[in-house]
Every structure is written in C-alpha cells, then in structure tokens.
Design a binder for these strands. Structure first.
Lengths: 337, 337
DNA sequence: ATGAAAGCGCTAACAG
DNA sequence: CTGTTAGCGCTTTCAT
C-alpha cells in the first residue's frame, strides 16, 4: 500500500510553507489566486487528499452530525434522513448514521460510539432512552435534537409530532364513516414506543367518545412489516370477526392485512375497513388505496437540519430548548370508503 | 457548552500518567486489573468520553470503512448494509455511509469526501464510475471492493453477481410457461446501470433462443418505484396489448404494474404474466405473489465484510484481486402461473 | 506494570 | 499575502 502524500509533501513540491497549502484548501482565506491554483494543481497531480482527521483534531470541529434512527430499512426514516443530510451537506456537514433496530440497549451503545467521534450535534429519534444514554447525551457538550415524537421530558430540542394526538382525526374519520367496533394491529410496545403511543392515542380517542374499547392485536417484535400485518389480520378475523375497522401501526402492516383479506375473500372496505400510518408509496397505489397519515418525514428532516445549523452558528448565544411541532396529515383512501 | 474532560484530566484525577489511562481503555494492554478498574470508574464518573479523532490521528487507523450505495431507501441495499455493518461492528469497525442517488457525479464527490476521512477500506456498489472517481479509488491506498455487479474491468476486489446472466433462468422460466411476447419495464440506462444490464440480459436471452425481440418500456429516471411501474404498465397495455409477459426492473415496479392491471380488470397471470427482481417483501405477499429473483443481499454484505476484514488483517500479504460470485435464485410466484 | 518524550497532519495565533 | 511556532488529544516508542 503506497502511503498518501501529506501537506508537507505538497508544500515541498510547490516551494511554499505548509500553511500556504493549508490556506489554499480553505475557501475564504487569503492566498493569491495564482498561488492557490498552482498549489491545488500540484496537489491533484500528486494525488494528495486532504486529511479531515488531522484537520478535525486541530480545529476541534469534526464536521460530523450524528443521526440515530430505529431502522435503516424504512421509507419514512430514509426520506427523513435524505432531507436532513442533503441540507447539512450544503453546510459541509456530514451525517454519521447509526440505527438501533428498535433496541434501547443498542441505542445506548450507539450514542457512546458516535459521541467518541466528536459530532458537532446529535439528532436522535425520540422515545425512550436508557438512563445512561440520556446522561451521555446531556453531558455531550453538543446540541441534542429529538425527532419523530414529542417526548414528555425532552433532553433538549425537539422536532416532531404527537403520536398520540395523530390518532384523533383518524378515529374521528372512522366514526364519521359509521364504523363502531375498531381494532388496532401493533407491535411490542416496549420496543416501538411511537407505535405504542399511536395505539394509546386510538384507545383514548375511542374512550373519550364513549365508544367500544379498542381491540388490540399484538403483531410481535418491531419492525412490523407486511407479513406480520397479514398474520395479525388472520388472528383478528378468526377471533373477532365482527370488527368493522382496523388501524395498523404502519402502511406496510396495513397492506399485509389487506392481502389476508383478499385471500379470504373478505372485501375492503365493504366487509372491513382498513387504515395504516406513514403515507408509504404502497398506501397510495394499492387496490384499494389505504387510508393513512402522512407525518411529513422530509419536513422533519429539513426542520431538524435547519435547527442544527442555527444552533451551530450560535449567533444567538444560549437559546433555550426549542420545540418545533410538525402537523401530520390524514389522507383518506378507498380502504375506509 | 461545557468542554469535555480529556485523558489528561482523568490522569490527574487518578494520579497516574496519561499513558496508563490510555492503556486502561485498550483491551489487551498491560495495566493491573485494579488500576484499570479504578481509572475506568473515575473516567465514567467525570463523564470522560474517549476521543476517537485524536486516537485515529496518532495511530493512523480511522476505524472507518466507507460504503457507497445508490439509494438509502431500498430494502435490498438496506439489508446488504445491515449485514455488512453488523459483521464489521464485531471487529470494531464503523461504517461511513454515502448514497449517490444513482448519479455518478455525486458518486465522485462522495468518494472524495469519504476518502478524506481516511477509511481503512472502501466498499462501493459496482457499475460505472467517473474517470476521476476510479483514479481516486485506485490511489486511495486502501482496499476497494465493488459489489452487486461483476464489472468487466474491476478496480480491485469484487463481491457480486452478473445482472446480465441473472435473466437467463427468468427467460427460461417464462418460455417454459408458454409466454412468447415478452416486455421489460426499466429505468434510464445511464443511471441504473445494473438494471440496464438485466434488460440487456433479458434481450440477449430471448435473442439466443430465436424468440421475438424484447419489448422495452422506458419508465423514467431511477429509482423506479411503484408509481413508475404502474405508469409504464399503462403505456404497455395501451400500445402493445398482445404482450404476454412483463419483466420489471424491480419488485416495486412489478407491483405497481400489477395494480394497474387490477384497476383495468386485466387478470394476472391469465391475461398477462408479471415478474420482478429483488425478492422484496411485497413479492411474497401480494395477491398474486410475484415471480422474482433473490440476489441474496445479506450474503453480499456478509461476504464483503469478511473480505474487508481479511484484507485488513493482511496476514497473507498482497493477495491479488479477489472475485466472489454470489448466485441469485429465481423464485417462482403466482404471477407467472 | 508504569512513565516520559516525541509526534501523527493539520490549523490557531501571531508576526512580518 | 505568507511564514513561524505551538499544540489539538491521543499513541508509539523507549526507558525504567
């Protein structure tokens, strides 16, 4: 393996000091245009590659922002992350990604691992954290933003929405369509805390309206995907066939539930209505289309990025904790017709 | 913002040298068990967090492996990445992720950005690269692994499969089912080069068997998702209604195509057969299930990780370029019944 | 088993 | 506009 040249090598080749080479790589530092161009050419020719590691150490700015999400294989989190990282890229910040697989122990491990890389900020999908993870985040010395939720006790900043409240318009809609006996298909509450909040939200909304209690169907360990949705639907159709409408924790599980209905010849929405969450691509194209809620992942990503950027600029010193609330949108599809 | 304590601070508090603190954080270095425990306790109490940046600089080992994929929102790449990063994690290596959005200019930018972080190896989804990206990779001084393809001129190592060859069993299957007039729905060939290769593979396989030429339906810019699949299917049904079978560049577009058929009352497979690629969750659960090809993303990830690890261990000095071929599997579903 | 000195590659701070 | 000096926080190396 040939060792890469350093600034010193470039400086020698260009007959200037290392400092001049260093400055040539910064946009707005004072080097004569011709010197800079000459140096950059020599560097490119030598195959010189700027060393961020060394630069970071000296300048005490890593250029990293850490992002923690539950799952990498989830269109909502992917959209969110894209919007987030695209905006940060414009400010020359790079995202250092970690995913927890819905496990708070793993989250704690990740938080520590990522903080060792000295990110300039950390953005984490909200919900429950271990005690130690919280402590690490609080003492990290960098801005912390929790997203996708409105935690009751935020660590610092928040960009999200209430998973509980998001079920109000959904229940309202189902009731207005005349559905009375309503079920919820969701995963283990310990792991998918945001999903569990939607379940609680649905239960509460029914309760407040004096309706029959929510029928809760457990679909196993998150992530709850299509197959789990189908299995849970089978369980529901077998055990409580008089159910009139089903809300699923996500569009994927809702589609899985839909396929189970199709295989059994149960018509949606004539025999049973169906709703999901997330506004994934499939909810808008399946037959029938599925009623869902759009949490606006790109907005969450963009607003989080803007918040991080303004916190790092730090023009307004010591702004208190910010809470930016995103309003999810109910999208009525054919499945609750 | 309170500044984080350094090893020096911990050393002072523990009345030892920085070196002893440093050693206490390495697994197999010689510190007495009681000293180590005492130091680690003090460090935890002070909120000390190991600084990877400084450690990397001195030891010239970043602990990073760079991974470049076309899209983050793709279950196949997500599965691949999970398998890859989970294996690397066991060796205390962290993945530094970049996604190109199917743009080779963006890929070039990413390669440079990631190399500045001095990864110990770089794993990139194969296909076309810009001249400069190739040059950067070749001169990077670290192992380069191309995946998900078998490039004709590999940069160095390869873990993948032939996208061309993968269409042979598919065409064979369709012909054996009696389908003759076959179409392919795919995205822009400049961008999704692996998808384009599957299209070429299908065309060639038909050609070699003396069948009618492949009917090629353009579905726009990658990534081709459900909606694009539905639109392309509409185009096909309008323009060439005598088509007997359609291969789509991915399962998502195949499902989109299926929904278009459902909306039109075109029966699958009675009126037209349908196949996809990728063995995404939806192909196994939709009604009908969709015939597809499983490229074994987790195998690619795991084998890539193993390769990287053995290259970094470097026990066998200077092993030549390795090519590990993964065999995709045809999965016959109800859609080509 | 522990410590002292040197330095990884770069940039802050200051000088000219 | 350019150069010099010092040092970021850690680990390598050598000494004890």
């Amino acid at each position: 393996m040939p060792k890469l040249p350093t600034m010193k090598d470039v400086a020698k080749a260009a007959n200037v000091s290392v400092m001049t080479v260093s400055r040539s790589f910064k946009k707005d530092s004072s080097v004569s245009a011709e010197t800079r161009e000459r140096i950059l050419n020599i560097a490119e020719e030598m195959g010189y590659l700027f060393d961020s590691v060394a630069s970071n150490l000296r300048s005490q700015r890593s250029g990293f922002v850490a992002a923690i999400i539950p799952s990498i294989n989830n269109a909502n989190f992917a959209d969110y992350l894209r919007a987030f990282s695209n905006r940060l890229m414009e400010e020359d910040l790079q995202v250092l990604l970690g995913y927890t697989d819905y496990d708070i122990q793993e989250e704690e491990r990740l938080v520590e691992q990522l903080l060792r890389r000295r990110p300039e900020a950390i953005v984490i999908v909200g919900g429950q954290h271990t005690y130690r993870a919280r402590r690490l985040l609080v003492n990290s010395g960098v801005p912390v933003v929790e997203t996708w939720d409105l935690p009751p006790l935020p660590i610092e900043h928040v960009v999200g929405f209430s998973n509980v409240a998001t079920m109000e318009p959904m229940i309202e809609h189902l009731i207005s369509q005349g559905f009375k006996r309503i079920a919820f298909i969701g995963g283990d509450a310990e792991r998918d805390t945001r999903g569990a909040e939607r379940q609680r939200g649905a239960a509460r909304a029914l309760d407040e309206r004096g309706m029959d209690a929510l029928r809760q169907i457990a679909a196993g360990q998150p992530p709850i995907a299509m197959r789990e949705g189908a299995e849970a639907m089978a369980k529901l159709l077998d055990s409580q066939p008089d159910t009139e409408a089903v809300i699923c924790v996500s569009d994927l599980s809702a589609f899985g539930a839909l396929t189970e209905c199709m295989r059994r010849g149960v018509r949606v929405p004539e025999d049973i209505a169906l709703a999901g969450f997330g506004a994934f691509g499939i909810s808008g194209i399946s037959v029938p289309t599925i009623t869902t809620v759009d949490p606006h992942p790109r907005d969450i990503g963009l607003r989080s990025a803007e918040l991080v950027i303004s916190l790092l600029r730090g023009s307004e010193k010591e702004i208190g904790p910010t809470c930016i609330e995103i309003e999810p949108t109910l999208i009525v599809g054919e499945s609750t017709g």
